[in-house]
Structure formats: structure tokens, C-alpha cells
Simulated scan of single mutants.
Amino acid sequence: MSAPDLVTLDVWTVGARDVPRALWRMAADRPLLGRLPGARFAKMLGTGDGRTFTVRDADPLRWAALVAWDAREDAEAFEGSRTARAWAGIARERVQFRLAPRSSRGRWSGREPFGADAGGAVAGPVASLTRARLRPARAASFWRSVPPVAQELHTVPGLRCAIGIGEAPLGYQGTFSVWESTEALREFAHRGPAHRDVMNRTPREGWYAEELFARFGVVDVRGTLDGRTP
């Protein structure tokens, strides 16, 4: 399958009193998002700090939408959609990452949403997305392995931002991170001892029933996250 023309990740931050409205929007927007013109793949996502990948990480004040678009014009038209307008009415802060797929391995809900391999080097900032569905019998072992990797991630040079993402509080989880360069991402992925240990253990531990790893060029970042543009 060919790569989409553009992938967007919207992250909305709401106030505590608007959490019930955000939860309602999450339920209401799941079917709407995938029916938008040009949306070939769409997910409403919860977020967290990604330090344990358990319910302790969950952030009820921050929610996200990931969409792979056939064309950039479709992504622009999203701004007039019911979903975008509704979140604009409750969000205190919004950031949108606009991404060009460069490589992807694995599946998400049985699909290859970002194409098999778009190819091409990334000049400038690069984004990484990981997503996995855990095998219930192996979840405890996986969760024990996460804290050292999370600590390593949040201290490595070249990281601009990182958030945990997931379709459910348990068992469906991932990370989205933005890096200053491909070299910075590679330094973490292949030279960080904790991350390298988890990579080496993954095949023999059998943690994942489904997994996906994708890399993107950062086309643009619109808005702010925690008061700044990543």
C-alpha cells in the first residue's frame, strides 16, 4: 500500500472541568473521524507520560487524534469538520504535528496505515511513532521493562517532546516523539543501553500480539504543547 500524502497528530489539552466533555467527544468522534473525506486511517487516542504504560500514566487532560490523509487538501479541510470545531470549543491548548511518512514496519489494527516504506532520508526534525498491542499473559513482564527505557528517553540529548499514546488504558499503547535529527533518534534507539536491551529481548519475550514502528519527516508544527512549540 502506498504511503499517505500527510499524517496529522492533533493533541488537545483541556481543563479539569471539561474532562467529561472530552470523554464524550472521544466516544462521539471515533466513528466520525474515519468517515472524513480523504481519511484512510484514523484513531482517537488517549495520552500519558509514557513512563510505565499502565493506568498510572494516563492524562485525562490531554487527548489526541491521528489521521493518515490521502491528500494535504483533505487535512486542511479537517479544520472545518465537526470534530475540529468541537475540540476547539473545549481545548485550552492545541498542537498539530504534520508529518510525511518515511518508513514503517508492522501493522496497526491489521493494517499498514503509513505504507510499507516511503523511503528517503529525513533532513531536519524527525518524528517516531511506536504502537503495540500486548499479549495479556506477557503484559506484566513488559511493564517491568519500561521504567528504565522511559528514564533514558526523557534524558537523551536531541529530544524535543515525547508523549504516550493509546487506544485504551491497558494493553494498547505506544509513544510519539519528536527529535532534532535522525542521528539523535538513532542514538537513543540503538545506543541507549536500556532501549537496546528491550529491543534485544522483544523477540524472545513475545510481548506483542501486534506492533508497529514508523518514522516521519516533520513537515510543520502548529500550535503549542505545554506553552511552547516543540
Rank of each mutant, 00 (worst) to 15 (best):
D57E: 09
E152K: 01
L153R: 04
S81I: 12
G119I: 07
R40E: 13
A3E: 01
A123E: 15
A132L: 08
S104K: 03
E211M: 10
A22Q: 04
R215Y: 05
L45P: 01
P113A: 11
A58C: 02
P101E: 12
R138W: 02
I165N: 00
A27V: 10
D57V: 02
R51K: 12
S103A: 13
V19A: 01
S104F: 04
G164M: 09
T13Q: 15
R111Q: 15
G119P: 08
A209C: 05
G110T: 10
M199V: 15
R201V: 07
Q173R: 12
L61A: 13
L153A: 11
E180N: 06
L225W: 14
G124P: 05
P20A: 10
P125G: 10
P169L: 11
A68N: 08
S103F: 05
L185R: 12
D57K: 06
G48Q: 04
G124L: 10
A100I: 13
G15F: 01
G115Q: 11
A140T: 07
F213S: 06
W63N: 05
S145E: 08
L99Y: 05
R107G: 06
A116Y: 11
T13F: 01
S181V: 12
K43C: 12
G46L: 09
A209N: 09
N200H: 15
M26P: 08
L6P: 00
G171D: 04
L66Q: 00
P136M: 06
L36D: 10
R51C: 09
E205R: 06
R160T: 03
P31G: 07
L9K: 02
G223F: 02
R111Y: 00
S2D: 07
W108C: 08
A123C: 11
G38D: 08
E152P: 02
T83Q: 09
E73H: 13
